[in-house]
């Protein structure tokens, strides 16, 4: 097997003195979609924040074989890790245009306008709102903007934190279709944190189940969705 794109070994994370994650181990491979399932407070968001060095951690995180757990957030991002954060992280005072430009701020200026056009092919709504202050967008539009902003980085991997949060079911469907397309056409690997387990397992090829900061189960997504206990606890049928 080839080296994993992103891997964690004995990953622990802390908020102040409180430990949130306990010796997490996981790998994800290039081109795949890995999902991290778990209840509220299981440590899903913290895992993503640990990957982009936004919390105090110990243990090893490797990206493309390189050790990144000692790097700063901005430097990890520059390697091609696009983190779409919880709450979408919109630059509310800036326009939609500026938000997209910020997404590509580490990229050569020459490619920006072409990349903006590329984002529009996936999210035509953003084109209509181009000059609008981003804070005035609806929740769904802000989520699109967040993913569009991440795309501007030309990322190797996207870390997606609950992209379905607070959105109407129809929009969620649409969003997940787009994610699937992005994965296929743009060759973006994805690390997806979701509360909506059935959606996530449908999209992902590999899944990890997190409970109170520990990985309690992992395997191919199909296998997990077939599992009796997962079905009862997380899928609800």
């Amino acid at each position: 097997m080839s080296t994993p794109l992103l891997s964690a070994k004995n990953l622990r994370a802390f908020y102040g003195p409180t430990q949130i994650l306990y010796d997490l181990n996981f790998d994800m491979h290039t081109g795949g979609i890995t999902t991290l399932l778990g209840a509220n407070g299981a440590g899903k968001t913290t895992t993503l924040r640990a990957l982009s060095a936004m919390v105090r951690t110990s243990g090893e995180i490797r990206f493309d074989g390189k050790l990144i757990s000692n790097k700063e957030t901005a430097d990890i991002v520059r390697l091609g890790v696009a983190h779409v954060p919880e709450g979408r992280g919109t630059f509310v005072r800036q326009t939609v245009e500026e938000n997209l430009q910020l997404g590509g701020i580490t990229q050569p200026a020459s490619q920006i306008s072409a990349d903006v056009e590329r984002v529009f092919t996936y999210f035509p709504r953003l084109k209509e709102r181009f000059r609008q202050q981003a804070g005035t967008l609806s929740g769904g539009e802000q989520q699109m903007l967040a993913i569009g902003r991440a795309l501007m980085l030309r990322p190797k991997v996207m870390l997606l934190d609950e992209p379905s949060f607070g959105l109407a079911p129809l929009i969620v469907q649409e969003m997940f279709e787009i994610l699937r397309t992005l994965n296929k056409k743009e060759k973006v690997s994805m690390f997806l944190v979701e509360q909506n387990a059935s959606l996530a397992l449908e999209l992902a090829d590999h899944a990890y189940l997190l409970e109170t900061g520990r990985v309690v189960m992992s395997g191919p997504a199909k296998q997990l969705s077939a599992d009796e206990s997962i079905r009862r606890a997380y899928l609800g049928y």
């Binding site: 005072r93 430009q101 701020i105």
Partner: peptide, 24 residues
């Protein structure tokens, strides 16, 4: 300018700015 934009972003929303690769 891009630096100007990055500066505005870094002050308005430092966390998000880091996540697009800005050294805040």
């Amino acid at each position: 300018t891009r630096v100007g934009l990055a500066m505005r972003a870094a002050s308005a929303n430092p966390d998000s700015a880091r996540l697009v690769g800005i050294r805040v």
